[in-house]
Computed example of a mutant assay.
Amino acid sequence: MLDQILLFAAVGFAAQMVDGAIGMAYGVTASSVMMSLGIPPATASASVHAAEMFTTGASGLAHWRMGNVRMKLVLRLAVPGMVGGALGAYVLADLVGEAIRPFASLYLMGMGALILWKALHPPPPREEPPRHVGLLGLGGGFLDAVGGGGWGPLVASTLIGGGTVPRYAIGSTNMAEFFVTTTVSATFLATIGLELWPVITGLILGGVLAAPFAAYVTQRLPDRPLMILVAIVIVLLSLRNLLQSLGPLLGG
């Protein structure tokens, strides 16, 4: 048990460093690593979301205190996001782990590609009211639960690309994510339960320990090279997961 806690504390530390530096990809990073270790998608997503209740709560509070949150935008994201997250968790809980693994891997590869695209093509900030926020929250919550992560890369990047000021997009997305994550975790608890407590404990400890260092990294490192590196790692891990899951079908 201690070995598991230490291993996933390292995973949680690394994932939080990434998330703290670029404002996204905690769930995608942690889920990619967990699936590469053979953990079923539903269990990986449940564990990551349970840990994220603590990390997103702290992150949302910090953004609120720094004036990066627009509560009207938070509500427009959080309510449909909670609905989508609950539906996604319910659907994932009913699917066989090995059957959904290829699709989860493809989804995570897509998230990695999205992060890479945003790193190479950063949109210019424009002060415009965001559109279709409800649909974005609904879809973001559903895909986040099914894929084990992706709320930040999808929602925050879409808001920024649509003209929302980046700090308001990131801060509001982070605060809304707390409510979405809590709903997803409660749904998993009611359906498949939360079994891997050493994994969850490790992710929480690693994330909490990384938080102050991540804030420092945010100030010191440029976003673009880090986003490119993270995107490449996520795509490679997901590709490995995909090939492993398709191995029996391909005669591997």
Rank of each mutant, 00 (worst) to 15 (best):
P198Y: 12
T29P: 01
S157F: 04
E195T: 13
V133W: 06
L92S: 08
L106G: 15
G110F: 05
L106M: 14
A44Q: 03
R70L: 04
L136W: 07
M66F: 03
L189T: 05
S238A: 13
L196S: 12
V180K: 13
A176S: 09
T191S: 15
V165L: 15
R167G: 02
W151G: 07
A145P: 08
A58V: 08
P40F: 12
A9L: 08
A50E: 04
A46S: 10
M17S: 11
T164A: 14
A44E: 02
W117I: 05
L249G: 12
M175Y: 05
G88N: 11
P124K: 15
P122F: 10
A42G: 12
D3S: 10
M66T: 04
A62I: 02
V199G: 01
F54R: 00
A25S: 13
G140P: 02
L6F: 13
G110C: 15
G163A: 04
G27V: 02
A10W: 00
T218V: 09
M1S: 11
P40R: 11
L249H: 06
T158A: 14
S32A: 15
G139F: 09
R101C: 06
P102W: 08
E128L: 15
V155P: 06
E127I: 08
L189N: 10
L237H: 01
P212G: 05
L87Y: 01
G147S: 03
L237G: 00
L250H: 06
E128T: 14
T182L: 15
L108P: 02
I232W: 12
P248M: 11
V28G: 02
L229K: 00
M71E: 06
L106D: 10
G20H: 10
E127T: 08
G206P: 06
V133F: 01
S172M: 07
A15D: 00
T182R: 00
F188A: 07
A58D: 00
G171I: 05
G84E: 14
G252D: 05
M111F: 08
T173P: 04
Q244M: 09
L77I: 04
A58N: 03
A89E: 11
R167V: 12
Q244W: 02
E128G: 03
G207T: 03
S32L: 00
G251D: 10
E128K: 14
S47V: 07
G251T: 08
F142E: 00
G57M: 01
L6D: 05
L196M: 13
F13R: 00
L92D: 10
P198C: 13
W64E: 04
L250G: 14
P122D: 11
T158M: 11
Q219Y: 13
Q219H: 15
L229M: 12
V184L: 10
